[in-house]
Design a protein around this nucleic acid. Structure first.
Length: 432
DNA sequence: TCTGGGGTCCTAGGACCC
DNA sequence: TCTGGGGTCCTAGGACCC
């Protein structure tokens, strides 16, 4: 690193310009947990996953193996690679333990995924010392009590703290003292900025922009033309270190979805019904558990070659009934497929709901005389909702498999471990 | 032989309203 | 007769994040 590791930020002042934002990020989390659980895997190139690499140990990364890579490609790059199945419940448990340790230093913790969180330690320096000292103490406790390597970035803003923790990896601390921000960022690659992925990195590289310093020097309108207006403004602010976001409590999710990879399959009516039924069942269940209903339903159909289309519909009243969601999803998938008749096979189906609202009172059953179509529709909705609620209750006691709609119970969609689906939801509120 | 599951945010065009 | 401007909502797609 051009700027090395700034292990010391000097004595902390109590002024507003002190860097008190920490970003704590577990290193190669899934892979590190596997190496923790099975000592024979330590110091060896391993990957969690199978068809796709979910996480790679640093030993594997040195061969070029990285998360998201197809399994066959990873084996090509690293012939000695060991694949491990994945202990998803352990990931959740150990991730929670780490977050608990963070909470011992400050209540201002914003968990943003299973393995990383922001902290603002402004109110904790009197108890625990300067931020750099707190960062070191956190790392020590996580290493000692949980057994996992954690990297920490310390800076004045969240975004900068996150960049710093990436620079600190593996297993390090980087402190960016106030005033040193521009020097710190100048020679770092643009890809370290939040919001710069493969595509934008390539766009920027095409314009000769490789470092954050170069990006900060670019005129705003030029940047807008390069990567689009919204992204351009954001990137400019980030590169120029104007980033006022605070550490905050997690919000409720604004969408809920589920998907299932199918391999290559003929899009038969039977496949559509069973798969969409299964997915709608998962989504609607979580929707009801959150006490909300959805106005917008979206279905995604993916074809070979990762080409995908989405179809969505916005309805009123909002829905949370499994069968109603299934019907909308089947209709949408039908529309999408009718518009892509050339496609013989599909590789994935996804159902998601958004536009989430507080449900209207579900128990008003308009069952009096002369049921109009609207009224009978409402009655169907209400009775479906009651059936769903009683199934939710049974499942809460006896597990998902205890009861369900026939197409769902008999579908073969549980190839993906339930624990992985639960983990992927990573709803930060669930582990308070 | 391009793969897993779960999300967020942004854009652009069109419908529709005043 | 069809011109102005502004706003909201909806749909489809895409980049990005873990």
């Amino acid at each position: 690193m051009a700027h090395g590791r700034l292990a010391n930020s000097g004595p902390a002042s109590n002024s507003d310009s002190t860097a008190t934002i920490l970003h704590a990020d577990l290193d190669a989390f899934y892979a590190s947990v596997e190496q923790l659980l099975d000592p024979s895997l330590r110091d060896r190139p391993i990957a969690v996953g199978g068809g796709v690499v979910l996480a790679a140990s640093y030993e594997a990364r040195s061969f070029g193996v990285s998360a998201g890579m197809p399994g066959w490609r990873a084996r090509q790059l690293c012939p000695g690679l060991t694949f491990v199945g994945g202990h998803f419940r352990e990931y959740q448990r150990l991730g929670d333990e780490v977050i608990e340790i963070l909470g011992a230093f400050t209540p201002v913790v914003e968990r943003i995924s299973i393995d990383e969180a922001f902290l603002d330690v402004a109110g904790a320096v009197h108890l625990f010392g300067p931020p750099a000292t707190i960062a070191a103490a956190i790392r020590g406790r996580v290493r000692g009590e949980v057994g996992l390597p954690l990297s920490v970035g310390v800076a004045r803003t969240k975004h900068l703290a996150k960049v710093a923790s990436q620079v600190a990896k593996p297993d390090g601390i980087v402190v960016v003292p106030p005033g040193a921000e521009h020097a710190f960022l100048e020679h770092l690659p643009v890809g370290l900025l939040w919001g710069v992925g493969r595509v934008r990195q390539a766009q920027l590289a095409g314009a000769g922009i490789h470092t954050i310093g170069q990006l900060a020097a670019v005129d705003g309108s030029v940047l807008d033309n390069l990567v689009g207006k919204g992204a351009g403004g954001k990137l400019g602010a980030l590169a120029g270190n104007i980033d006022p976001r605070r550490v905050e409590a997690p919000r409720a999710a604004s969408s809920i979805g589920a998907q299932a990879a199918l391999g290559r399959r003929q899009a038969t009516t039977g496949l559509l019904h069973s798969t969409l039924g299964y997915l709608a069942d998962r989504v609607a269940g979580r929707l009801r558990a959150s006490g909300r209903a959805a106005r917008t339903v979206t279905v995604r159909v993916r074809f070979p070659g990762l080409r995908s289309v989405t179809r969505s519909v916005t309805v009123r009243p909002a829905i949370s009934e499994t069968l109603t969601l299934t019907e909308r999803a089947v209709e949408l998938a039908g529309t999408a497929l009718a518009q892509h008749r050339g496609e013989r096979e599909i590789t994935l189906l996804a159902v998601s709901v958004s536009n989430l609202v507080e449900p209207a009172c579900q128990l008003e059953l308009p069952l009096r005389s002369g049921a109009s179509r609207a009224r009978s529709k409402a009655a169907v909705g209400a009775s479906r909702w009651l059936v769903d609620r009683s199934m939710d209750g049974v499942r809460a006691k006896f597990g998902r498999a205890a009861v369900g709609y026939a197409t769902v119970v008999f579908s073969d969609m549980d190839r993906v471990p339930e624990a992985f689906r639960e983990l992927a939801q990573h709803d930060p509120r669930s582990s308070e």
